[in-house]
Design a protein around this nucleic acid. Structure first.
Length: 552
DNA sequence: TTTGTCTGCCCC
DNA sequence: ATTCTGC
DNA sequence: GCAGAATGGGCAGACAAA
């Protein structure tokens, strides 16, 4: 019981199974027989959480360092192995194969790693701070690799990266817990979406006490998310919708317990300390004694237009100079939903009803404008206004829908404009990982500088490519490589990509001075030469007029 | 002290 | 965030 | 339709190296 080897074997088995149902069955059988403490650890390990709620501070650099030590080679050689396998797990397994035992005891055959022991090491890694902490992380990882069999090492490495790559995410883990203890998957999902704590859910499921997990102040609820909508007419097909601006800001969930106020981010991080003016405005303008509120914060500049998203980023996670930054990038709150009010769970009320309660619970001035409307022309008008104001587009919501925590359903649709695409030159590429191992997985883009004839960087693209196209491009670009360093290659400028995006941003890191927000490949332009690619001038012109700034 | 690198269930 | 893929 | 995987720009903070 509780052996890490057994866990690793289950992971290996799960990775090799395509069918979700079969995967769930195998995981359920494994979880069912674990004791309480091990159940909690195994459940979170399965979804790649080494320690629930804590940051490990381990990335590729520290992990490769530890692997190099375990193998008795250089970090560079580890990187070479990474390039050929695209998988830290396989590199770690090779390391365990080659290792010399760290101690005689290890050699004499210790009884193998326990789940709790592995998590204990990860705790030590997470706790390390201050001078020498990176070395401490490397040492703890090295220790684990030295004690591990190849199979165990594979999943220790993946845990260290918090990425298991076994085709098990939150969804399947939840289903496995339900199956293990013969419960309704919907009930397990509900418990998880209300607590975000898989360990707790697994234990309560085992005890048959899932129903005790409910909405509570200071326990953040997973946020309801939106799907991309086709267009306004399609969204109106079912009747009237609640229309709101889609703000270019950051999502917040606010918990108010009398005077005590906490703010959580999209990933349910506590960001209260970084956003003092939001706390203040909630204290002054939310009348409800107890509430959980959902909304978006935006930064507004002197011209009344939203400031670049980059400025909002400067506020989140900030620990120092918070008040000074609050003055230079002031945030405005736009509440659009309420999940809990004075002891009552509102999740199953309709959006319309929740909006009514929200209107009574807070000052109108901190609410997002909303109208319920079935008229296409009227919705179009609000859409045009949102874009002219510098925001992203519209949210169209089903007025009779409940608040579905953690769901990305069709009850909330986002409508955004399609920007005209750019034709850019591929100037380099990077070797991929996992599914894209030993293929080029992302591509460096350049635009023309008409004056000098040079190609200037505008960033990278790595999505929008099918597996076939990826293989084809790897074949073509491999022959164009002029320089190679680490995971990156430089290629002769020959291939042109048509690239889509949401917005052009000023960039502090690329030589053109611009970068694309959410770049994706639309097509390979076989018909275009690099000399016909778009110029820096065109990019800066689009930057100047985008999002309704043309007339201002 | 300054500069560079790494990390983040980061924010989008 | 976006996009593709297998179920 | 869903869940999972692989990837984007850019920010602050924490360390390590210079």
């Amino acid at each position: 019981m509780g052996s890490f080897l057994a866990f690793a074997q289950i992971c290996q088995k799960a990775a090799g199974i395509g069918s979700s149902l079969e995967k769930v069955e195998i995981l359920a059988g494994y979880l069912r027989d674990l004791q309480e403490a091990d159940l909690g650890i195994a459940a979170t390990f399965l979804i790649g959480e080494a320690i629930p709620g804590q940051e490990l501070g381990v990335g590729p650099s520290i992990l490769y360092d530890a692997l190099a030590r375990a193998m008795g080679c250089t970090p560079g050689q580890v990187a070479d192995l990474m390039r050929s396998t695209g998988d830290v797990g396989l590199v770690a397994a090779a390391a365990a194969e080659k290792k010399r035992p760290l101690s005689l005891a290890a050699f004499a055959g210790s009884d193998g790693l326990e789940l709790a022991e592995v998590q204990g090491r990860f705790m030590a890694i997470a706790r390390a701070s201050g001078r020498g902490s990176q070395e401490a992380r490397v040492k703890n990882l090295h220790y684990l690799f030295s004690e591990a069999s190849p199979l165990e090492a594979q999943f220790i490495a993946r845990l260290a990266m918090e990425d298991m790559r076994i085709g098990v995410g939150e969804g399947l883990a939840r289903d496995a817990i339900a199956r293990a203890f013969d419960l309704d998957p919907e009930e397990v999902e509900r418990g998880y979406n209300l607590t975000s704590n898989l360990e707790l859910v697994a234990k309560r499921a085992r005890e048959g006490r899932l129903a005790e997990l409910g909405v509570a102040i200071n326990r953040p609820v997973k946020m309801m998310l939106a799907q991309i909508g086709e267009n306004i007419p399609a969204a109106l097909a079912q009747g009237a919708v609640a229309v709101e601006w889609k703000y270019d800001g950051a999502r917040v969930q606010i918990h108010k317990d009398g005077p005590a106020i906490r703010v959580f981010s999209r990933r349910l991080e506590d960001v209260t300390a970084s956003l003092p003016e939001i706390v203040q405005v909630v204290r002054e303008r939310v009348w409800a004694r107890e509430a959980i509120l959902d909304g978006e914060v935006v930064a507004t500049g002197g011209d009344g237009r939203p400031m670049p998203f980059q400025d909002i980023l400067r506020r989140f996670r900030r620990k120092y100079d918070v008040d000074r930054m609050a003055r230079s990038v002031p945030l405005k709150l736009n509440l659009f939903d309420i999940l809990y009010l004075d002891g009552e769970d509102l999740l199953n009320r309709t959006l319309q009803e929740r909006r009514r309660l929200l209107t009574k619970a807070a000052d109108q001035g901190i609410l997002a404008d909303q109208v319920v409307c079935a008229d296409q022309a009227a919705v179009q008008k609000i859409y045009d206004e949102a874009l002219a104001a510098g925001h992203e587009g519209l949210m169209l919501k089903n007025p009779s829908s409940p608040y579905a925590p953690g769901k990305r359903g069709k009850n909330w649709l986002k409508i955004k404009p399609v920007m005209e695409s750019l034709d850019l030159v591929v100037t380099g590429a990077r070797w991929g990982e996992g599914k894209r191992a030993s293929q080029l997985g992302s591509f460096r883009l350049g635009c023309r500088d008409v004056q000098t004839g040079e190609l200037l960087d505008v960033g990278w693209v790595a999505t929008g490519l099918s597996e076939d196209l990826l293989a084809e491009l790897t074949g073509i670009l491999r022959d164009l490589i002029v320089k190679e360093s680490g995971m990156e290659v430089e290629v002769a400028p020959q291939v042109v990509f048509e690239v889509g995006y949401e917005e052009i941003q000023r960039s502090p890191s690329y030589s053109s001075g611009y970068a694309l927000r959410f770049p994706r490949l639309i097509a390979v332009r076989d018909d275009k030469s690099p000399e016909e690619a778009d110029s820096l001038e065109r990019i800066s012109e689009i930057f100047r007029i985008q999002r309704g700034r043309a007339g201002s």
